[in-house]
Nucleic acid binder design. Structure first.
Length: 995
DNA sequence: GTGGTCTCCTA
DNA sequence: GTAGGAGACCACA
């Protein structure tokens, strides 16, 4: 939104009541359904959308939204429980119209916005503020006095029934005070309809006069004794508190955590057929005719739409999630309109197809994609600059460039660019070889560049401006890899789209795991019915594998150009599905902006002290060797301690120890748990085995392996983050995995001391405290948990206290430990079996604990049941930000499979919401640091609930509070959590001390 | 050499 | 009981 734009905000809830009372009561559909208010509403919307210039407002809106009350319960009830308490139930023939009005709004393709905990007025106030900040004007379609406090230079109101605009003079004329004093005026007068107390005996006239005399409410209350009239003075002094609470009740919040910004409210031309379908169903014949004339649609051939009549008062759309603004597909559809030059082209293509709904576009594209065959012989090898320039000009023309780099390594931080492929239209793809060679350049000779390749620097020079061109969308499959590689070469790509991430948002969850994830080969099979050339068919595999620069250019062209072509085709197919499925904002807020954030983190890497690791390796080796001697002695023979099979035979075969259990495959289990139990019985050997395993694990996985990941050039370790490999929305880290560096044991912790800051700098670690339990407290809305988190109490002790009736003071450690295990169990989709295992107690006892827990926290059981039901119903569950995780196998007939999927479905919204929160923090972090003059503070690592930064020592004190603030407020404004988030942060020279 | 199994490190 | 990645072993090719 920009200066000169004009936003219309319709107070839908206010309108419906006013229309109901103002219009003839007898308007009914032929089946008796009362639709008088709906009819008035539709006529008004149509008029405002197409001929607002003819009204008293006299301008054409550029942005438009209809705002509703979500329910009668809002934050005001917490301030004043009696608020709106005397409001009687709405008339019976109005009730079904609440839902119809929302359906009408969607039929008009207008954003339909409501939010739990806030009134429509608060949402209106927030959007009006945002519009004002953007330099735009706002007209509020309402005549409600509660909204008049918002009127000002850029905000006016419009009474649609009187066709009259309300500006500052009109407010003064009606109430005797300017808009900015309306809050104080209402605080004094109160409101009998909403049960706002006010000061008894003070009406609007008196209130206006008093405010005129004293200026504002605070001054009036402070100097009340100066009032001459006895009765009035006494009343005000006595009811000062009522006036203050009233002021808080009538003051509108303009900081509502909106899910969608102003751009989503952009007014689209009316969708004739869709609207007519609704109007016909409602039997609004004259409006149907007017709409048909205006949109050129033939009403005769359009069938009436299906109308859902809801009888309850809570008449929300079916897609309203608890605590969320309605992220309807309508809204998402609008959002996609602003996705750049490409989306608009897609939209016009769909319009030509005649039925421009997102779902139809998706269907058309899917059919197209399957029908089109892929012809590898049409691919081009670009060997000169002129041809390359022609192709890049075509990219500027189409506004899209599918790109894929070919390199010598899977690690983008050490890979060398060998060539790149591009595609500008489906089927039009080319490969640009840059560094193919005629051999490895070993003793046999060779290693020279092959002829017929554009000089490296010249090719990059012409590519660079296109990659940086904001009007050309760069599309890739796992484009973070290409981004990092090209960024190293000084080429920065923006804006980006990633087919892997689009697929991840659309089809994330266990279903994608079973079908091979979101890799391109898999997506091509699934969506295009096409089998891509396998990498190993081009470069070989195993010992005979060669790097891509050794691949024959013709062969490379077929392989590489196909990748770019397939990626472009997938993008055309999958991108519209985001809109159709209402997942645009998940992609736009949680995935797309994270690509370059993670890319920079990977590029920065973290310093690892080789000496420390090498010393630790030596220590571990020595200690392990000593244990090996003991072990052979105790066992009476030498064997491979690392072989569970051999170890099992020694322990349970040769020595005949009791307590043996078998693994799934019938082997003796030698897990740490079993060995610990044996050790507790006084057996020495199992104890040594456990210790030996720990040392060898630390040595092989960490102290020996990590130095191999230190990059030759940067001398730092650069992990690779995967954005699309978990079912819940978490990231994963590999090569090396820096999300599982030891911390639990003292020996293991030492490894963290090897992760260090450069001289003069510090590492800062900031981690969320109990974020998943807080998410649970929020989504399941558990009063005791909310209270405990609000008060900062030890949550596990509180749980124990609730369950076992033990006071928190002097609680035995074992009691708290059990409660803690239960709390974690809940997050994991508890089972008696699992809890029993965790606590080493009988299954019956564990079952009794769980029963007890659910008695104390019935809301948790309800939440779990509801989550399972949704998963069965829809096949997926959602995080609080709308990310979906699919669990189709929750309907499996196999009880084990089903139970597993139920637990996963319970866990996913909790784990996933927490993952979304930290993603949001990461997306915002860099800009916030920069704004605070802290651009030298660098985000390096993410470990699920922790972020690691490296900062110059001098900036640490300023950085810590800012980092905490960004992390703690990361859910806002999309979700106002009912539980505060808490972040601990610390700085030190190494990761061990910082954490 | 590849893939399955077991074990163990993290949140 | 959730979500990951990785090393070692071992049977198979």
């Amino acid at each position: 939104m920009k200066k000169g734009d004009h936003l219309f905000l319709v107070d839908g809830s206010g309108y419906i009541f006013r229309a109901y009372h103002a219009l003839p009561p007898l308007t009914r559909k032929s089946d008796g359904l009362p639709v008088g208010a709906v009819s008035g509403f539709c006529n008004m919307l149509w008029k405002l959308m197409v001929s607002a210039r003819d009204t008293d407002v006299g301008v054409v809106p550029t942005h438009f939204a209809v705002i509703f009350d979500y329910s009668s319960k809002t934050f005001r009830n917490e301030l004043y429980p009696e608020y709106k308490a005397n409001r009687s139930a709405p008339p019976e023939d109005l009730v079904p119209q609440f839902g119809l009005i929302r359906q009408a709004t969607r039929a008009f393709d207008l954003p339909c916005i409501e939010m739990e905990g806030f009134e429509a007025d608060d949402i209106i106030a927030t959007y009006a503020r945002l519009a004002c900040e953007a330099g735009a004007d706002t007209t509020i379609i309402s005549s409600d006095k509660d909204l008049m406090q918002l009127v000002g230079e850029t905000v006016s109101m419009y009474d649609p029934m009187k066709d009259r605009e309300i500006r500052v003079p009109e407010v003064i004329e009606k109430w005797g005070v300017p808009p900015e004093k309306m809050i104080d005026l209402q605080a004094l007068t109160g409101d009998s309809v909403d049960n706002v107390p006010g000061v008894p005996g003070i009406g609007p006239k008196t209130a206006a006069q008093l405010l005129e005399q004293f200026g504002d409410l605070d001054t009036l209350l402070a100097r009340a004794s100066e009032i001459k009239q006895n009765k009035r003075r006494e009343s005000i002094i006595e009811n000062a508190d009522k006036a203050r609470i009233s002021r808080e009740l009538v003051r509108l919040r303009d900081d509502v955590p909106l899910v969608d910004g102003l751009d989503v409210l952009t007014l689209q031309p009316p969708n004739g057929p869709k609207l007519i379908g609704f109007l016909k169903a409602m039997e609004f014949t004259s409006l149907t005719r007017r709409v048909a004339e205006a949109t050129g649609a033939d009403a005769a051939v359009i069938d009436p739409a299906d109308i859902v009549v809801e009888r309850g008062e809570e008449a929300h759309g079916p897609d309203v999630g608890a605590g969320e603004q309605v992220p309807t597909s309508d809204l998402a559809g609008k959002g996609a309109g602003s996705a750049g030059p490409v989306a608009s082209k897609g939209a016009s293509a769909a319009a030509m197809a005649g039925t421009p709904t997102p779902a139809n576009l998706v269907a058309t594209r899917a059919a197209e994609a399957l029908a089109a065959s892929i012809d590898r012989t049409a691919y081009v090898t670009i060997r000169d600059l002129d041809t390359l320039n022609e192709w890049l000009a075509d990219a500027r023309e189409t506004g899209v460039l599918s790109i894929d780099t070919e390199t010598t390594s899977l690690y983008p931080m050490e890979a060398e660019l060998v060539g790149f492929s591009i595609a500008t239209r489906p089927g039009k793809a080319a490969y640009v070889p840059l560094a193919h060679r005629n051999g490895t350049g070993d003793l046999l000779g060779g290693g020279e560049l092959l002829p017929g390749q554009i000089p490296f620097a010249e090719a990059l020079a012409v590519l660079k401006p296109v990659l940086a061109d904001r009007s050309v969308l760069k599309i890739g499959q796992n484009i973070k890899y290409d981004w990092v590689l090209l960024d190293r070469l000084g080429l920065t790509m923006a804006p980006l789209d990633d087919t892997m991430l689009i697929s991840y948002v659309l089809d994330g969850g266990s279903s994608s795991g079973n079908t091979g994830g979101h890799g391109m080969d898999r997506l091509a099979e699934r969506w295009l019915g096409h089998t891509c050339i396998a990498y190993k068919d081009v470069a070989g595999s195993g010992k005979s594998q060669v790097t891509f620069d050794m691949v024959d250019i013709e062969r490379a062209t077929a392989y590489a150009a196909e990748d770019a072509d397939v990626t472009l085709r997938l993008w055309r197919l999958l991108k519209p599905r985001l809109v159709a499925d209402g997942l645009t904002s998940v992609y736009e807020r949680l995935e797309r902006p994270l690509i370059d954030v993670l890319g920079r983190m990977e590029r920065r890497g973290i310093a690892v002290d080789r000496q420390i690791l090498s010393r630790l390796s030596g220590d571990f080796a020595q200690a392990a060797a000593a244990l090996e001697d003991d072990i052979y002695q105790l066992a009476g023979e030498r064997f491979n301690i690392g072989s569970p099979k051999q170890l099992g035979d020694i322990l349970f075969g040769k020595m005949g120890l009791a307590g043996a259990t078998k693994t799934a495959t019938g082997q003796w289990s030698t897990s740490a748990r079993i060995l610990e139990d044996l050790a507790a019985e006084g057996h020495d050997l199992p104890r040594r085995i456990v210790d030996w395993r720990q040392l060898t694990k630390l040595k092989s996985t960490y102290t020996d392996a990590l130095p191999g990941f230190i990059n030759r050039d940067t001398r730092r370790v650069h992990t690779c983050y995967s954005m699309a490999s978990t079912s819940t929305g978490r990231l994963s880290s590999s090569e090396p995995n820096l999300q599982n560096i030891p911390i639990r044991t003292t020996e293991g912790r030492k490894i963290r001391t090897a992760f260090v800051a450069e001289p003069g700098r510090k590492l800062i670690s900031a981690d969320y405290s109990q974020i998943e339990l807080r998410v649970l407290a929020h989504v399941a809305d558990i009063p005791q948990l909310r209270q405990a988190f609000a008060d900062g109490i030890d949550i596990h002790a509180m749980t124990a206290s609730e369950m076992f009736g033990v006071p928190v003071e002097g609680m035995p450690g074992e009691v708290r430990r059990r409660a803690k295990a239960i709390n974690f169990g809940i997050i994991y989709g508890i089972s008696a079996f699992g809890l029993a295992n965790q606590l080493s107690i009988p299954r019956e006892e564990a079952g009794a604990y769980i029963k007890k827990y659910f008695e104390r926290f019935p809301g948790i059981r309800d939440y779990m049941d509801e989550t399972k039901a949704t998963a069965r119903d829809k096949g997926y569950v959602e995080t609080i930000f709308g990310r979906r995780a699919h669990y189709p196998e929750i309907r499996a007939s196999n009880p084990q499979v089903r139970a597993f999927n139920e637990r996963a479905a319970i866990n996913a919204p909790i784990q996933g919401s927490a993952a979304d929160v930290i993603r949001r923090a990461m997306v915002r972090m860099e800009a916030e640091l920069e704004k605070a003059g802290l651009s030298d503070v660098e985000m390096l690592l993410q470990v699920h609930d922790e972020l690691i930064f490296e900062a110059p020592e001098s900036l640490v004190d300023k950085a810590i509070p800012l980092i905490r603030s960004v992390m703690e407020n990361a859910a806002m404004p999309a979700v106002a959590m009912r539980v505060p988030l808490h972040v601990d942060a610390r700085a030190a020279d190494n990761w061990d001390e910082a954490h």
